[in-house]
Each structure stands twice: as C-alpha cells, then as structure tokens.
C-alpha cells in the first residue's frame, strides 16, 4: 500500500511542487495550506509522514509539530520541516517540539525523494 504524506505550506507553488514530486513517486499526498488546515485534514486519516514549511503565518511549522504530536495517532509520525535557515535556536525549538528533521531549501526533487524514502523506510 502506498504511504501517505501530508504536505503543509502556505505557498501554493511549493505545496504543489512538493506534492507533485511525491505523487510521481507513488505516494498519496494530502495538501494543506496552513497548520489549521492540516490538523483538520488529517483527522481520522492514516498519515505516514508530515512535511511542513517552517515559516507560515498564523501557525508556523514548529507550532504545527507540537499540535500534531498531541494527537494520539500521530505521536510517532516523522515530521520534516522545510526551511531555508540553519539557526541553532530554531533547530532546537523544532526538536523539542518533536520534529524529526528538516530539509533545507532550495532542494531538488531527487533530494526530497531520497530524504522521504529514507525516513519512510
């Protein structure tokens, strides 16, 4: 059975591009444009991986991570953050929130797929 990836990004272009890349690799993709949207969308669904943008208005990726970790069914789902920065404080914050890791933008499709494959292995 193909795995399901939740892609959260307020920027449609990135969201679509990431979603498309994953779909071509045979993953099921759920897209969400904000943290709230994401939380609503995964309700009752089986999600194997969450990829979320770090910088989003309203709820950022770290806050979303915290919320997702609160959900019973999602306490162990890997969560990857998309970000351009490599600040220590942010990383630490993300880690404490329960994130699994991150992908630094810009990245190429191959990189995204390889990271996702490894996390989902």
């Amino acid at each position: 059975m193909s795995k399901t990836v939740l892609v959260v990004d307020d920027s449609p272009s990135i969201r679509e591009a990431v979603g498309y890349t994953l779909q071509t690799e045979g993953y099921q993709v759920i897209k969400a444009e904000s943290g709230k949207d994401a939380l609503e969308n995964i309700d009752g669904k089986q999600v194997d991986l969450v990829i979320t943008d770090l910088h989003m208005p309203a709820m950022n990726g770290i806050e979303l991570t915290k919320e997702i970790r609160k959900l019973n069914d999602f306490s162990r789902v890997p969560i990857l953050l998309l970000t351009t920065e490599s600040q220590v404080s942010k990383k630490l914050e993300a880690k404490l929130a329960g994130a699994t890791g991150w992908i630094i933008k810009p990245f190429v499709a191959e990189k995204l797929i390889s990271v996702v494959k490894r996390v989902l292995r």
Binding site: S34, K36, E40, D43, K66, R69, K70, S75, G98
Partner: peptide, 12 residues
C-alpha cells in the same frame, strides 16, 4: 505533549 485532540476551525 498532552494527549487530546485540538479541534481545528474552518480555515480555507
């Protein structure tokens, strides 16, 4: 994290 669901409001 505390176990429990946060009901999200309509967002789009």
């Amino acid at each position: 994290p505390v176990v429990g669901k946060v009901k999200a409001e309509a967002v789009i």
